[in-house]
Design a protein around this nucleic acid. Structure first.
Lengths: 114, 114
DNA sequence: TGACGATATATCGGATTCCGATATATCGTA
DNA sequence: TACGATATATCGGAATCCGATATATCGTCA
């Protein structure tokens, strides 16, 4: 089973997971919180979406997982964005920037205020 | 059956369809071409995704449909982005701009060239 | 005339993805 | 010890994606 290739266009879920991990390693729960924080609550994902996607991301090598040491209860897993993951995220951000630019060119300004 | 509400976060498919219609009315085939053109071929959608989504977009009022007149063969349907559709697209573009900004803040610069 | 490629609309069905509901368990603290 | 927050995980239904396929028209070129 070939590892699924992760490449733009990414789903919203994948984009946000990679984005959350770009600053620092996080465990699952932390990813959910970080995503909510980044988007001001506009984008949220539940555990179903998160773990579905983490599975795919791990298999394709854009994210790695390791167990945090020195923790009594053990079993807190940290997720880490790999170099190849950063490249994928970078490509996706470039794509999104183009989308935004195209949109700003095409859409008459709405709610210019603020 | 309540019309499904279209609101951010939009899927990539919906975002691109609305974007294609932002400049001018298009028929289905034209939407596909416009999307490929806007994205430089990076994002494409087939007729399945297109008509699935058009159905939903029509039902929720962000897009309307009308038949082009004065055409011998008849039956070329044009799709039009409504005001409410423009508002939705605008909101989505704002969201995406925030995503891009957050990413640029978090990602170490890759491939700075160009 | 006939063939061809591009244009144009549409549906089907399998695969993928989404994502809330639910279930555990631990941790800090009051 | 009770509680809320933290943390991980799975399930299954729903929604979405999207290529394959089918049909028909149009222009054009031999």
């Amino acid at each position: 089973m070939a590892a699924p290739k992760i490449a733009p266009p990414l789903s919203n879920a994948v984009t946000h997971i990679l984005l959350a991990l770009a600053r620092r390693d996080l465990h699952g729960y932390g990813i959910m919180q970080e995503i909510a924080a980044i988007s001001g609550g506009e984008y949220k994902l539940g555990p179903g979406t998160l773990y579905d996607n983490l599975k795919t991301l791990l298999a394709s090598g854009v994210v790695t997982e390791f167990t945090e040491k020195n923790v009594p209860g053990e079993a807190r897993r940290l997720y880490h964005l790999t170099d190849s993951g950063a490249v994928v995220l970078d490509a996706e951000l470039k794509r999104l920037r183009n989308v935004v630019q195209a949109g700003r060119k095409r859409l008459p300004r709405i709610g210019e205020a603020q």
